[in-house]
Simulated assay, not measured.
Amino acid sequence: MLEHGGNLRDAAKRFGRDDWVDLSTGINPRWYPAPALEGNAWHRLPEPDPALTVAAQAYYGAPHMLPVAGTQAAIQTLPRLRAPSRVAVSAPSYAEHAHHWAGHGHTLTLTPYDELEAAVAHNDVVVVVNPNNPTGTVVPAEQLLQWADQLAARGGWLVVDEAFGDTMQHNSVAAHTARPGLVVLRSVGKFFGLAGIRLGFVGAHADLLRDLADLLGPWTISGPAQQIALTALTDHAWQADTRRELHASGARLRALLAAHDIRSSGTPLFQWWAEAQPEAFWQHMAERGIWVRLFTQAARGIRLGLPPDEAGWQRLHAALTEWTNR
């Protein structure tokens, strides 16, 4: 299995402490307050709730959506819906995409963002994480739609992972997923801070969604997850307040890093930079109870998310000061 953030048990075992500030995931540290559940949520088989799909279509602006057990379920399954293809995956980006497209007979190319346009002409499938995780790079929606049309004209796909797209809905291409060949992945885990319920959505042409649903099988989303997500997706006041808070917190994080001579990029939920000494920085932070995401492969660097409270901000500031003055 690939390594991911959020592995606090590993951190505690390795460093022998339990007072962690977990900045390793980029998940909103102020999660949506889950409502009280109906009693039968734990009893009934979780047949799909049409109201959840309607709420997702309204929230994401998509004509058709399929609930899945986190976008990870779609990432693992989509490669099984195509015959062996030439696939370009944006790099660096969320590693699970390349990991799964590399299987099932596909020919994979890891493609830097500035080479994606050229890759469209030579591949059957192009996968773009937008905004990118971990760097925050953004491809304009207009460009993505042009690529989608080019690929669809020869039976290809453009897969756009918008897991971190909730703070920049204006750049989403989910509204255009009725056209063949455009697939959009959205996550409830990041913006809503509900990674534990394992829920995401796929926007695509109805025929592709039908094939994906058949392959995933029945009862993929638990009853409690459906009830919680339905409330979250329709709580417009919470969504508006949270977007304002995240933009302010994201700007604060970027300014804090800049004050310590770190020039970062990212989204309101996380910042990333190509740290010259990533292992040393990660070790320095871990020894102070701050768990950040270390990247050592295609993109050597550090990604960190938002502290959950003022005490967390102060601990991060102190650790950065010690790093700068070492």
Rank of each mutant, 00 (worst) to 15 (best):
A62R: 04
P67C: 06
R82Q: 10
R80Q: 14
A95E: 13
S85H: 10
T107Y: 06
R80N: 01
A118N: 11
H106M: 01
L78P: 06
P63E: 13
A58W: 08
P79V: 01
G70K: 01
A95Y: 09
E117N: 13
V129S: 05
P112Q: 11
R82A: 15
N123D: 09
T109I: 00
H97G: 02
Y113L: 14
H122Q: 15
Y94N: 03
H99Y: 15
A73Q: 14
T53N: 07
T71V: 09
V120H: 05
A102F: 04
L110G: 04
L81D: 05
A88L: 11
V128E: 05
A56L: 09
T71N: 10
P134V: 02
T71M: 01
P112E: 12
E96W: 09
T137V: 11
G136H: 00
V68C: 08
L78R: 00
N133R: 08
L52N: 05
S85Y: 07
N123L: 02
E96R: 01
A119Y: 10
T71E: 06
S85T: 10
H122W: 07
W101R: 04
A102M: 14
H122N: 15
G70W: 05
G70T: 01
Q76F: 02
Y60P: 03
N123R: 09
V89K: 08
L110H: 12
Q76G: 11
H97M: 00
P67F: 07
E115D: 14
Y60G: 13
P63N: 01
V68Y: 10
G61E: 12
E96N: 08
D124F: 09
A118D: 15
L78H: 05
P134G: 03
Q76I: 04
Q72G: 14
W101F: 14
R82W: 12
Y94C: 00
A51D: 13
P50A: 08
L66Y: 00
V138I: 14
R82G: 04
T137M: 02
S90E: 07
A95N: 02
N130I: 03
T109N: 06
P63G: 09
H122F: 11
Q76H: 01
Q57P: 06
V127Y: 10
Q76D: 10
D124N: 12
A69H: 07
H104L: 06
P84G: 06
H106D: 08
P79Q: 02
Y60A: 15
E96Y: 11
S93H: 04
M65P: 02
Q76L: 03
L66G: 05
D114Q: 14
A55I: 00
T111D: 02
T107R: 15
G103H: 13
